[in-house]
Amino acid sequence: MSYCLYCHQSYSETWSWAALFGLNAEPLLCQSCTSSLELIMGDICRICGRPFSLFPEQYRHGDSCYDCIRWEEDEEWAGVLQQNRSLYVYNDFLKEVIANIKYRGDAELMKAFYPIIHKTCKPMIRDSILIPVPLSDERHYERGFNQAELLARGINRNLNFSLKRNIHEEKQSKKNRKDRVKNKSNPFDIINSEEIIDKRITLIDDIYTTGSTLRYAAKVLLDAGAKQVSSITLGR
């Protein structure tokens, strides 16, 4: 018997031969919490990884969504982010889980996603360097940890910290898309460009909302000589 990492209820695993022989990775969430998470499946936007099933048909243009087309039409941003892939739909439940991690500080909860993110992301990140999207020092101190780094550790212990965030800006979650894109000064900086020159980079972050944070980070990396930048996030 184990305790669900999120709701703390005790539960027992469903019976199966694989579980009996210890072949399954031990689930860390109970069945009811697991079923509240929605894995992204089916047709998705080629660029940002958003599932087409979740938004009105008129915002879809071929294989990408309207938001991505807007990014790609902008000369400055076209092609900056190769692609983003996300694990789950950013629904109310995931919102609540991520809020518990980020704002309440329950770092342990991130481990609930380790087995699945390890399994799904391993093939995507071959021969690329993993960089968690950094926090500013002030925010990092306030929170005590960086949730993107916690998530990245679930994929691979080998992380690169060449990216730095300088400006202590207002929390992104309090701004809308226009404000986020308008905010011209790029908060990111490179500490050590030798490590990334001509390399393929995978950025890791907790959520993809408008995609501007990831694009700012990608732009700095490309300007410093990276070959290509894509990203993986938990929620979309």
Binding site: N100, G105, D106, A107, E108, R143, G144, F145, L150
Partner: peptide
């Protein structure tokens, strides 16, 4: 549970998950 803490620079800083809703 424990986490790698930016405040005390310890690799495993133990915290209480029971009253986490009131701040760690």
């Amino acid at each position: 549970a424990s986490f790698s803490c930016f405040r005390c620079k310890s690799e495993s800083c133990v915290y209480c998950r029971n009253c986490i809703m009131m701040g760690r």
